[in-house]
Simulated scan of single mutants.
Amino acid sequence: MMHWNVYLAGEIHTNWREELKEAADREGLAVRFFSPVTDHAASDACGGHILGAEEQPFWHDRKGAGVNAIRTRPMIEKADVVVVKFGDKYRQWNAAYDAGMASALGKPLIIVHPEEYQHALKEIDAAACAVASEVSQVVEILRYVTRGELV
């Protein structure tokens, strides 16, 4: 049986990744999940902490983005499917970037967001194979694509 590599991009302020992983485990789905560092403070601080502090915010953020990309780029490249969830806290430019990168690499995209984001995310939604409003729908999609089963 093929194991699918699923990259989980997007918002880090809720436990949606854990919910998805637990549901996939309960279903016995042949999937492996990968994700960025979800500790917001660590993700923001990693570049300056490891490579040296920067006085200007641009360079501080640039170092952090570079260090984080060492993790995220290979994971997106190895993914069979990329799931990107947009939440209501902060504007998630990184999630939009991950969706664009996955799309450029030809990765199937599952986008998750509430209905009120449809207009703002219309281009990202257009690149997706599926647009869900609930994480439970992602589990159903993964069940279907990995097993060919509708429940």
Rank of each mutant, 00 (worst) to 15 (best):
T14G: 12
N15G: 06
W16Y: 04
R17D: 13
E18Q: 15
E19A: 09
L20N: 11
E22H: 11
A24W: 11
A24L: 04
A24G: 02
D25E: 15
R26I: 00
E27W: 01
G28V: 07
L29W: 09
V31Y: 06
V31S: 03
R32Q: 07
R32E: 10
F33M: 09
F33G: 05
F33L: 05
F34T: 09
T38R: 15
D39K: 14
H40P: 05
A41H: 10
A41D: 12
A42V: 15
A42N: 01
D44K: 04
A45P: 01
G47P: 05
G47M: 03
G48S: 15
H49L: 14
I50C: 08
L51F: 13
L51N: 09
G52N: 11
G52I: 02
H60I: 00
D61C: 00
R62F: 11
R62T: 06
A65E: 03
A65N: 12
A65G: 02
G66A: 08
R71M: 02
T72Q: 03
P74S: 07
I76C: 05
E77Q: 15
E77H: 08
D80Q: 04
D80V: 08
V81L: 14
V84P: 03
V84N: 01
V84Y: 09
G87M: 06
D88N: 13
K89N: 06
Y90V: 05
R91Q: 00
Q92D: 04
A96Q: 06
Y97D: 06
Y97L: 07
Y97S: 04
D98W: 02
A99V: 08
A102D: 02
L105R: 14
I110F: 12
I111A: 10
E115G: 00
E115P: 00
E116A: 09
E116T: 06
Q118D: 15
Q118H: 13
H119A: 10
H119I: 13
A127T: 11
A127M: 15
C129S: 14
C129Q: 10
C129D: 11
C129R: 12
A130I: 14
A130F: 15
V131R: 14
A132S: 09
E134A: 14
V135N: 06
S136H: 13
Q137S: 13
